[in-house]
Design a protein around this nucleic acid. Structure first.
Lengths: 127, 127
DNA sequence: TTATTAATGATAATTCATTATCATATAGAG
DNA sequence: CTCTATATGATAATGAATTATCATTAATAA
């Protein structure tokens, strides 16, 4: 049976409030702001449960930690700030039709676009 | 001082022959075809040296092992086969201008495009 | 050819993210 | 309210990639 706990509720609300992909340490930090005693094992366990439920999905960074975002968002891409390493959503799709450039016989099923640079806050702080 | 060894030469030739990014285990396997006694430590050490020399550059996969490719190739993107996990080059750039979709104040410096699906060999084998 | 010193190979150690363990706390059924 | 099974928190263990160690090998300067 599935019990409703303060930890799970808080972690869900953290993701809903973030509006961007979060890493497990980020989830821990934000959840601990409300439940200071929360442990990282609970964060990992809850993330895994929310993945199984289809409420979250993984965001696999090139050369970065795995983050998680709400499942069911519209197709979009991601931006990572090289200074603060936070990941942000870029709405819409930036990709042209890949098929015209593919080698013969390759079947494209999915794609990802990653943008890198400075986020608004870091661009101001380190111009 | 820099000594010329059969291992280094072989590893360089493996990268030049591959024409796609290689993971350290792939480099080890291909190098061992010529130098059966080669150790993985030598592969890692040599890759690091070739990176420092600017002869290789890292290819960081989303959710995959780090691969390496020849530095100085023209701008291109990458395809990963979900069946054999090999990475292939996609020549040219598939990206539209990202600036029109960026949130205010973000500075885009770089980008990556990843395509996923089945490579030619795997598409034939598992249709 | 010899001496020296960098490179190698085998393997131990490290790192970092994630998972397992287990005693305790607590949600929710009755 | 009481009971029981699930969830939690602290921490140990794991797994995978990479790096360090060190005795041995071998490239190259003299």
């Amino acid at each position: 049976m599935d019990r409703h706990t303060a930890q799970r509720q808080a972690i869900r609300e953290v993701f809903q409030a973030a509006r961007r992909p979060l890493s497990p340490p980020e989830v821990l930090q934000r959840t601990a702001a409300r439940l200071p005693q929360v442990g990282q094992a609970t964060v990992y366990r809850t993330i895994n449960r929310l993945l199984e439920e289809g409420w979250l999905r993984p965001v696999l960074q090139p050369g970065g930690v795995t983050c998680y975002e709400l499942a069911g968002l519209d197709h979009h891409h991601h931006f990572r700030c090289r200074r603060c390493t936070q990941v942000f959503d870029i709405p819409g799709c930036l990709l042209g039709d890949p098929r015209k450039r593919m080698p013969q016989g390759f079947k494209v099923e999915d794609h990802e676009v990653w943008l890198f640079g400075l986020c608004q806050a870091c661009a101001k702080a380190a111009p």
